[in-house]
Amino acid sequence: MREITYAQAICEALDEEMARDENVILLGEDVGIIGGNFKTSVGLYKKYGEWRVKDTPISESGFTGLALGAAITGLRPVVEIMFSDFMAVCFDQIINQIAKIRYMSGGQVKVPLTIRTPIGGGRSSAAQHSQSLQALVAHIPGLKVVLPSTAEEAKGLLKTAIREDNPVVFMEHKMEYNKKYLVPEGEYTIPFGKARIAREGSDITIVATSSMVMKSLDAAKELEKDGIETEIIDIRTIVPLDKETIVKSVIKTGKLLIVDEGHIRCGIGAEIAMSVLDDVFYDLDLPIQRMGTENVPLPFSPALEFPLIPDAKKIYQKVKQMM
């Protein structure tokens, strides 16, 4: 293990996969010469050349659709959409083209395509650069949806995403990019559809996505002082969903809280709750609870923004209420 940032871990995954397979290409806005808006592709342009690391015009529909054409004709593209908010600019390509072409063609084509895009608020980026749109993409059949938590998770899951022959929306948390984490040396991958128990506990189960895993871990430290043992499940992938790990944990603890940074309404929390409810209903001590960002656009001022997004303190308070 050594300490590197989340952004460096992403960069390593890209580098390793590009070295391993010459069909892997990276394209998007500013991914080349400057190594990405969040420095997730530093040095790759120099190493692999301008055709494999392509700086695109600001044309999200154009280059995302171009990546689909490249994917079905033999390349294995990784597209970077600079903010997940910008997916809205190319939703036809994601929803109607990328997610559908294999199915519509009766399985004639494979779509080895990864869309990487950062989610998350917390940096005063206001309403068009702060959204966590995982529920929107998870709603569409034909897309796999990945939400890594730590740098270690991000690297291993991204390598799996790139090797997938299916379209993957890989959602990185922009507040994590500069944080340092312990990451294993050498090659490893992390499979989809297999949740990770980030902390074992017997009193309550928290299912968390992305950076909410770390916020839940922070809350758990405080809860421990109060004698509450929290089990935290890092769900890793929303599609496919590892129901089994959640169900097993909730049967043990009798309490379930789901924490995801997307808006609460029609969100990941609702989906996970209903996915497991039939299997855990008679084991629950109280109704399933969920936390997410309040149902308003994210405002600019930190005074307005922070109160809307779940954090360790709010998770702590929520768990206390559930006890």
Binding site: G65, A67, L68, A70
Partner: peptide
């Protein structure tokens, strides 16, 4: 765009 990608 898909056609353009095949050409890419």
């Amino acid at each position: 765009p898909l056609a353009t990608g095949a050409a890419y």
